[in-house]
């Protein structure tokens, strides 16, 4: 038993969580929760309707654009600051501090600037995602051994060549970790962005379901989000570990 669990912890974790969920359902009752099987069936039924796919497409589009902005802007900020020791040291505390801010407090500002709709969602997702990507890129740059820079200087690499053929490859594993965390935070940001001032998307669906106390919708949308986030993160984590192996 012990060995089977150790060989496949994720599978047993899922089984354990499902069991806990079922027990919790027996404890709190039908008014508050739906049991696992019914939630899965309801989600399957939702997934057969075109309306639900419309919401998914809306959230998906906002998320992908926000993620692209997070990665590009985060890399640009991290590299621009990280390539120079002085700027790295000056701006690092700002980046770290902005990571601890409850960004939801900034949401009204985003809405005032962009108005209700797609751009606001994208902006809010990107605000969440850009910080970790920038932090990890900056840290990755300062972790590159100084001898690499000296070698590059000796070969008279231009700044662009330095970034492309020295900095990026050396910093890739750390940057990838940043992108992995940026991925999850962008998703959370996009969903939060949809919960207010939005007329479509999974976040909007959640918010209206709260208003109607529609437990079936709340639970199946939550399940869908958790499944997608956990699956993608597990895959990225695997790739992350592969990058960190010597010679990987």
């Amino acid at each position: 038993m012990r060995r089977t669990i150790e060989a496949n912890p994720s599978l047993f974790l899922v089984i354990m969580l499902l069991a806990l969920w079922q027990i919790l359902f027996w404890l709190v009752g039908r008014n508050a929760l739906l049991p696992p099987l019914e939630t899965i069936l309801y989600l399957a039924r939702l997934l057969q309707t075109a309306r639900f796919w419309g919401h998914i497409a809306e959230t998906g589009t906002a998320f992908i654009v926000a993620l692209a902005i997070s990665i590009v802007a985060g890399l640009a900020i991290g590299l621009a600051l990280g390539i120079n020791r002085m700027t790295a040291e000056v701006f690092e505390p700002f980046l770290l501090a902005s990571n601890s801010i409850p960004k939801i407090a900034l949401y009204p500002i985003v809405l005032l600037i962009f108005g209700i709709g797609m751009p606001a969602k994208i902006a809010f997702g990107a605000i969440h995602g850009v910080v970790p990507v920038a932090i990890f890129t900056l840290a990755a740059c300062s972790n590159v051994p100084p001898i690499f820079f000296r070698a590059a200087a000796a070969m008279r690499l231009t700044r662009w060549d330095l970034i492309r053929s020295v900095l990026l490859p050396a910093a890739l594993p750390d940057i990838f970790s940043g992108i992995r965390i940026g991925f999850s935070l962008t998703l959370i940001g996009t969903i939060l962005g949809e919960m207010f001032g939005s007329q479509s998307g999974l976040g909007y669906l959640l918010m209206t379901a709260i208003g109607l106390q529609n437990i079936q919708v709340i639970m199946s949308v939550t399940l869908l989000l958790v499944l997608v986030a956990a699956t993608v993160n597990t895959l990225l984590l695997k790739q992350d570990r592969r990058l960190r192996q010597p010679g990987g």
Binding site: S184, I188, I191, M195, L225, V226, A229, V232, N233
Partner: peptide, 15 residues
């Protein structure tokens, strides 16, 4: 623990 922070915890708030 490895995937925990990828999960949108706020989604549980309605429950």
């Amino acid at each position: 623990f490895a995937t925990y922070y990828a999960i949108p915890i706020y989604a549980f708030y309605p429950l």
